[in-house]
């Protein structure tokens, strides 16, 4: 049974698109046929992060309007042939999306794909609403600072009251916390909230901590999802997250300051 994952946060700039690209790639690399959809109509970014911006012909809105078929619009990733990208339209706005249209596309994708990752735009308006409406699982991307945490909390409230699962009284969306741009040294100085602080406020299952890392920016610039950079800490963090999501037990890393080589291996308690 296909599962729809929404990557959402409420706040902008916390790493939703980076996360969507990384986990979609991670799931595909693990052998699951995966599609990733950019819901940020008008502010298209996912294609850049995935490095497929020069291959976009048709987009999400074209498919909704019946101007192209899903197969015409889906772009196969150049690094992994189990991964497909459905880009957003850059020339339209969120009003071009309709609940009915999105539902139809997701139903069609569900027949063929194991995981469908929806990259939500920031905010809680129409685009974000439609991105989460049909979701089975939600990855809440939060930065360790108060405004991001509060916006995530708001988004969690919307997930539990306005999603399809909530409206139809089905089993609620499974919610996971991804704490991104985490810098243990700054937490120590009191400049950032700690993992414990964020978990206490959100009371949510922690799927993983992604450290603040130069490799994320490098990956974005080169159009390669950071998870492919297996040497980088952020890449490893995303690999852990995908493995944990798929049911593997892996100890948390990147929560404490680096402690040299041994600390890297045995740290993260």
């Amino acid at each position: 049974m296909a599962r729809i994952i929404v990557v959402t946060s409420g706040k902008g700039g916390v790493g939703k698109t980076t996360t969507s690209a990384a986990i979609a790639m991670g799931l595909a690399k693990k052998g699951h046929k995966t599609a990733v959809i950019d819901f940020d109509v008008g502010l298209r970014n996912l294609d850049l992060i995935m490095g497929c911006e020069r291959r976009v012909v048709y987009d999400f809105v074209n498919v909704i309007n019946g101007e192209a078929t899903l197969n015409q619009a889906l772009i196969r990733d150049k690094n992994c042939n189990l991964l497909y990208i459905l880009p957003a339209s850059q020339t339209r706005d969120k009003d071009a999306l309709s609940q009915e249209g999105v539902g139809k596309i997701l139903d069609e994708l569900k027949k063929d794909f194991k995981y469908i990752v929806c990259d939500s735009p920031a905010g809680i308006e129409k685009g974000a609403h439609l991105a989460m409406y049909f979701a089975d699982d939600a990855f809440i991307v939060t930065n360790p600072e108060v405004s991001s945490v509060r916006d995530s909390d708001r988004m969690l409230g919307i997930l539990s009251s306005k999603s399809r699962r909530a409206e139809q009284n089905e089993e609620p969306i499974r919610e996971y916390l991804l704490l991104s741009r985490y810098a243990p040294d700054r937490v120590k100085l009191g400049e950032m909230l700690s993992v414990d602080d964020v978990q206490e406020i959100l009371s949510l299952h922690l799927l993983g901590v992604i450290p603040e890392s130069k490799s994320v920016l490098n990956a974005s610039n080169s159009g390669m999802p950071v998870i492919l950079d297996e040497k980088s800490d952020a890449g490893q963090a995303y690999a852990d997250i995908v493995a944990r999501y798929l049911g593997e037990e892996r100890p948390h890393r990147f929560i404490d300051e680096k402690k040299g080589l041994f600390g890297m291996f045995f740290g993260g308690k």
Partner: peptide, 8 residues
């Protein structure tokens, strides 16, 4: 029985 989130 579930958390009451911001905005609810």
């Amino acid at each position: 029985t579930h958390p009451v989130r911001s905005g609810q």
